[in-house]
């Protein structure tokens, strides 16, 4: 993957496949240059067996072929910078109410091997367009500012108009772009 935002697009598909109704994507940067990516969902979760094997590139739940590279690629990207990847998951058979998966990847953004974050706004637009029925909470926090999107708030305004409508997606794109432009004016390293 050329950009971290493409890994995020990819990993979020796992939450969608897991039947999540709410997905939280958080990017947290601290003053020392560590970036923590957290993707949390309330999907069906993984069994202990699946969780044990999920980092193995030759393990996949899919049936069309025998490899599943998504999590392996993200883990590699994190570890190349000196960071790490952790996954916690509760399968629905263990907890019928509180099930879901939380994945965290930590990156050293000062490392020469840190991939650029890339177009995170496009990743969010594509994800929402593909599955507008899901509620997404996105936050990107740096020591000086925060960009934020919570689709449940938009849904209250939109009523039965889908989040996937072109005009709505364009609004979301503009809404996020403005927040990032405000960031640039404060001269952060984003």
């Amino acid at each position: 993957m050329k950009e971290l935002s493409l890994n995020i697009l990819d990993i979020t598909q796992n939450s969608i496949t897991a039947g999540a109704s709410e997905i939280t994507i958080a990017l947290d940067e601290d003053a020392a240059g560590w970036l923590t990516l957290t993707i949390a969902d309330n999907g069906c979760g993984m069994t202990e067996e699946t969780l044990r094997r999920v980092r193995d590139p030759f393990y996949t739940t899919r049936t069309t072929r025998k490899v599943g590279m998504g999590i392996s690629l993200l883990q590699l990207a994190a570890e190349q910078t000196g960071g790490s990847l952790t996954i916690e998951s509760v399968h629905e058979s263990v907890d019928p109410v509180g099930h879901g998966t939380t994945l965290s990847a930590v990156f050293d953004t000062t490392s020469i091997d840190f991939p650029p974050l890339g177009d995170i706004i496009e990743t969010l637009c594509v994800t929402i367009q593909g599955h507008p029925e899901i509620d997404y909470v996105f936050t990107h926090t740096t020591p000086s500012c925060t960009a934020r999107l919570a689709t449940a708030e938009l849904r209250q305004v939109l009523g039965d108009v889908s989040l996937g409508e072109f005009e709505v997606i364009e609004w979301i794109r503009g809404y996020l772009t403005e927040q990032y432009e405000a960031k640039d004016e404060t001269h952060t390293n984003l």
Binding site: D10, G68, L73, V126, F166
Partner: peptide, 23 residues
């Protein structure tokens, strides 16, 4: 196609272009 293989090969701008051009 938006699996790992598609995304790594450049599916995100392709999808974006279809959505935009169709509209």
């Amino acid at each position: 196609g938006m699996a790992t293989c598609g995304i790594a090969a450049g599916a995100r701008p392709v999808l974006g272009a279809f959505v935009e051009e169709v509209n």
